[in-house]
Write a protein that binds this DNA or RNA. Structure first.
Lengths: 250, 250
DNA sequence: ACTTATCTTTTTGTATACACTTTCATACCG
DNA sequence: CGGTATGAAAGTGTATACAAAAAGATAAGT
């Protein structure tokens, strides 16, 4: 089973106090993968009892996991109302992509500076796997590897804090795609990811930054095209509007 | 009592699943403030029983709060070993300031674009309060308001996700200052914060970006000058080194 | 006197129990 | 027949209890 979006090196960092080998870590990873790979559709309720029985633990551990996922904005927890897979709003989706542009473009300078050949080779291997998955029609794997590539790229900068932020943004992007993307929205269509590696290998910072800017705008445009559906909240406003028109005002 | 670094508008967003009015919210804020204002020194142990008795609740609620603070990197939770106020490493400190440069400089464009006069007035008021606090020697308040200014600035961009990230970075900066800063390291010495508001009001994006870059580099330089102390971990290495020298090798 | 081993104390991890809130179904009334 | 109230069922919030681990103290041995 995969581990987060870490692409390899997650074998016990033992540094911070988040994934410190508790037995809930496995449960967390399971739920995390289920959500970002869209096995659980946005809005799906996540009752504590069900999860507790599923994983054979008590609700205590489940609650811990759910709160962690809530902090990462992958699930929504409302008071006395339980947890559900998050449904990012359109404005939240825009914020996510905007934040990704700022972080990924802003960090590309350090990425280029620190991109030793070995690091680039690892990234190329990731792209190769992504293409292989796409070629055999495994879209879920391809999308996953596409996200993993973006995270791995920033990791080269050596900034763990930024890498963590981006990891969250990439997983939330999966939710956005699941919520607003059309079936064929394969995020990075035929993945020009190799191109940016060429620019990085050539030491072309500005070129790489421009590529990233364009790439992320492409991804966003291919997804968030549709506006928010009525969604029961502005239902009242919509109906009022219809009523006014019907009465002949305007 | 203050609320996070939110500077006003925290009166129940009811939107996400984090601060949804549970009774632990008050406990969280208490601990949060105690940590970022350095009433609790980095490294201070936070035993669950003590906190539970202090706030008159059970350990269950305390654990929830501690895990949230752990996710925000303000406390360190190690398996079977409890929680303690985090002690950011030098490399973590560098990552934090680097991330701040990328995010705050990257978002300044949207800040300028969206900075209506009313927003700028609010920011000026914040700077005024900061100066007032500094003038009367209330350094804690001045440092707090300085951080609140940076957060409020980014909030103007309208990107809630980035604002959350920066909120975390600013509070972690407080920990860095507490850990590595000298007593007089007042982060922003006589706070040139008014200057950037002039640039923003004038619509000078590049000027504001350059100002922010320089400002954050100044803050970092005034803090992280010192290298990591032995810190008990490389104690062995240090002692071995001393022993070798004593034996006359080299 | 210093180190090592064992036992006690303290503290954390996890499960369970109970109170309260929400939700859904049923019955009552206009 | 539609709408509202009442009550049962399900689900969450919080406290407590017990098991396991770490920290500390005491005693034995070198």
């Amino acid at each position: 089973m995969r581990k987060g979006l870490s692409t390899e090196r997650s074998g016990g960092r033992g540094e911070n106090g988040l994934g410190t080998g508790g037995r809930d870590e496995a449960i967390y990873r399971n739920l995390f993968v289920a959500i970002v790979e869209n096995h659980l559709a946005p809005g799906t309720k996540l009752p504590e009892d069900t999860l507790a029985e599923t994983y054979g633990v008590s609700r205590t551990s489940i609650r811990k996991v759910l709160q962690r996922l809530a902090h990462e904005r992958l699930v929504d927890v409302r008071l006395n109302r339980g947890a559900a897979v998050a449904q990012p709003s359109v404005s939240e989706a825009r914020d996510i992509f905007s934040a990704r542009r700022i972080i990924e473009c802003g960090a590309i300078g350090k990425v280029v500076a620190k991109a030793v050949p070995a690091a680039i080779d690892e990234l190329r291997e990731l792209v190769r796997r992504e293409h292989a998955a796409a070629d055999r029609g495994d879209w879920r794997e391809a999308i996953y590897l596409s996200g993993a590539f973006h995270v791995a790229l920033i990791r080269v900068s050596g900034n763990e804090t930024l890498t963590e932020f981006l990891t969250q943004l990439v997983s939330r992007s999966s939710l956005v795609i699941a919520t607003y993307g059309t079936p064929m929205t394969s995020s990075c269509r035929h993945s020009e990811h190799d191109d940016v590696l060429d620019l990085i290998a050539a030491g072309d910072v500005e070129g790489a930054r421009a590529w990233m800017e364009r790439h992320l705008k492409d991804v966003e445009r291919s997804v968030v095209l549709v506006e928010e559906e009525p969604s029961a909240l502005d239902l009242r406003k919509v109906l009022d509007e219809v009523a006014r028109r019907h009465r002949g005002e305007r």
